[in-house]
Measured scan of single mutants.
Amino acid sequence: DNLVIALHSYEPSHDGDLGFEKGEQLRILEQSGEWWKAQSLTTGQEGFIPFNFVAKA
């Protein structure tokens, strides 16, 4: 599955970004460039995340 774990917390800075906490698990929905579309397994919310803040779970 496309699961990743957050290496750092991220505060959203643009509409459509997904904020998350360090250690949170996310499911990657789309990989494109440096911003990936993801869904939080904690909150169920979707949005874009910086790819370098996460690692394969």
Rank of each mutant, 00 (worst) to 15 (best):
Q39I: 13
T42V: 13
Q45K: 15
F51M: 13
W36I: 10
F48W: 15
D17M: 14
N52S: 11
H8Y: 15
N2Y: 14
A57C: 14
F48C: 12
D15N: 10
L3M: 10
E46N: 07
Q25E: 10
L18P: 01
T43D: 04
Y10S: 03
F20P: 00
N52P: 04
F51N: 09
I28F: 00
Q45S: 08
K22R: 10
V4T: 04
S9P: 07
E30N: 08
E11C: 14
G23A: 01
I28C: 05
Q31K: 12
P50R: 06
I49A: 01
D15P: 15
T42N: 09
E11D: 09
I5D: 01
K56M: 14
S9L: 05
L3D: 04
E21I: 13
K37P: 03
F51W: 14
L18F: 06
F20A: 00
F20D: 00
S40F: 01
S40M: 02
K22S: 06
D17I: 08
A55K: 09
K22I: 09
E30T: 09
H14T: 09
Y10R: 08
G47M: 03
W35M: 13
S32A: 11
E11R: 14
T43F: 01
L18R: 02
V54I: 06
F20W: 02
F48R: 10
N2E: 08
V4I: 05
A38K: 00
F53P: 02
V4W: 15
A55G: 11
P12L: 03
N52H: 12
N52D: 12
G44E: 05
D15K: 13
T42A: 12
N52R: 12
E24W: 03
E46Y: 12
A55I: 14
G19S: 08
R27E: 05
K22G: 04
S13Q: 15
E11Q: 14
I5L: 07
D15V: 13
F20I: 07
T43N: 07
K37A: 05
N2H: 11
R27M: 12
Q45L: 13
G23I: 01
G44Y: 07
F51C: 14
Q25T: 15
L29I: 12
W36Y: 10
T43V: 00
E24F: 02
E34C: 15
D15Q: 12
L29H: 03
L7C: 10
S9K: 13
L41D: 03
L29P: 00
S9E: 05
Q25F: 15
A57P: 13
L41W: 03
G33V: 03
I28W: 03
G16N: 10
H8A: 11
N52Q: 13
S40N: 11
F48I: 08
